[in-house]
Amino acid sequence: MAKPDPLPRISRRASLQWMLGATAALATPEASLHAAPPPTAKGYGPDPSMVTLYKPGDVWPLTLSEPQRRTTRALCDLILPADETSPAASALGVPDFIDEWISSPYPAQAADRPLLLEGLAWLDEDAVRRCGKPFADLTAGQQEAIANDLATLPPAPEHKRAAAFFKRFRDLTAGGYYTTPEGSRTLGYVGNLPLASFEGPPPEALRHVGLI
């Protein structure tokens, strides 16, 4: 497979412009997403090298602006923060995966793009409105308060779209996290290791379900 071009991310200047636009669009939150260009990149085609170790950005350009990435990183780490034994989502590259996802040229992911971009803008707008700062600059407690409003089931009518964003973002973050080698281990997956023999379930597993 041809080596893909290096991926220029949106410049700082463009980012600042975006940030200004996002803040200005407080009253009409959906206006900001129309600024986001739809991905025009190509996919990997019907015959990609399957053994190559890819990382987000290797096949198509990542398209989140720096402010969007900051918000993404903050939300990923609110959803899966580090604890005593597990790394945070950002330490396992989950924000890059989210960027890869929303930048994908394929239809299933492209359909997620408006919701996710709109939601990131909404988060910052809500953060600015509540605390005068973008989401990433809030304290953990402030971030959690915003997230709690979106996490309610069923969602509050005034938060319906933002709540849909939060649920989708949560699913992608968790999925992106647990599909890494390190993340899968925190879930209790200990496979993908060649073994000399398959010994079946250990006694403690059999005891757990009452089979011994």
Binding site: P46, P48, M50, V51, Y54, V59, A108, G176, T179, N192
Partner: peptide, 30 residues
């Protein structure tokens, strides 16, 4: 050419199905 021990995180889109790889990226189909 078969991707035996690659992790989903080592494939585009965590190996999810796409129109180019309809059983997922690491499925042995081209």
């Amino acid at each position: 050419e078969a991707a035996m021990l690659q992790w989903p995180s080592q494939a585009p889109l965590r190996g999810e199905r796409t129109p180019d790889k309809q059983y997922g990226f690491h499925d042995c189909s081209i």
